[in-house]
Write a protein that binds this DNA or RNA. Structure first.
Lengths: 124, 124
DNA sequence: TGTCAATATTGACATCCATCGATACCGCCT
DNA sequence: AGGCGGTATCGATGGATGTCAATATTGACA
């Protein structure tokens, strides 16, 4: 075990079935059923207009972070906003943190980058 | 009706509100409701495991093109495969062409690239 | 401790959607 | 023309999902 710098684990640290190397580029080889299952979840999370707007609101907020109160004006009720934020979180695209009365959501850059590469690499 | 090659339309060329610049990067500014509506359709198209596999099968096939007969083995019935391919086509991610008995689907690289940039830019 | 504001959860409901079998359409071949 | 293989469409069905009102939870503050 020489100098394998054990590495600072990159932000997301679920032990197994984690997020970072979610899959090869879409044109490298056919996705297996399991890979497709995992990856489709992320795309599906962005596949709803309200969720996409919420995500964009968080991502475009300063510091890639926003309080729920800052982004709740998307034309649906408060429970619905909460429900969608939960789904984005479950998909691994957002993380949340409570600070006093407010809850802040922030984007998970590594996951996003992985999804992006899935597509841009496939686009050549 | 001579051989008036009426011009090879460059695949994506709609003057405005077309496909290519479907939206700003997700972190540049909040998406409008209409932008979100349009963009979510594409993500939703990739948000199903079977469709994602079909897409990957086409994308990873030589020339980014495949006959339906080449990619029909994803564990669902033939009508279901056809249905999913239609959805991918409607979302602008695939195009199709009949050649004799067979129908060939191919990836639409520009749309894919646009989606990729939506994400990779947002990931910084 | 009690109240209030912010967020999450629950339960109900309507709509959407993935799936299938049956069938129609389309080209090729004899 | 008729048959046949490949693909698309139709209609039905069960399950997933977006939405809301009502309610619970959480933390701040008087």
């Amino acid at each position: 075990m020489s100098n394998l710098s054990v590495v600072e684990l990159p932000v997301l640290n679920q032990p197994d079935e984690a997020v970072a190397p979610c899959c090869p580029p879409l044109n490298e080889r056919p996705l297996s059923a399991e890979e497709a299952e995992r990856t489709a979840k992320m795309f599906k999370a962005l596949g709803d207009p309200v969720r996409l707007r919420l995500f964009s609101l968080v991502a475009s907020h300063e510091g890639g972070e926003a309080c729920v109160c800052d982004i709740s004006d998307v034309g649906v009720s408060q429970p619905t906003v909460s429900h969608h934020l939960k789904k984005l979180k479950d998909a691994g695209l957002l993380s949340s943190e409570r600070r006093g009365t407010w809850v802040y959501y922030r984007v998970e850059p590594s996951v996003l980058a992985a999804m992006g590469q899935l597509l841009t690499t496939a686009a050549r």
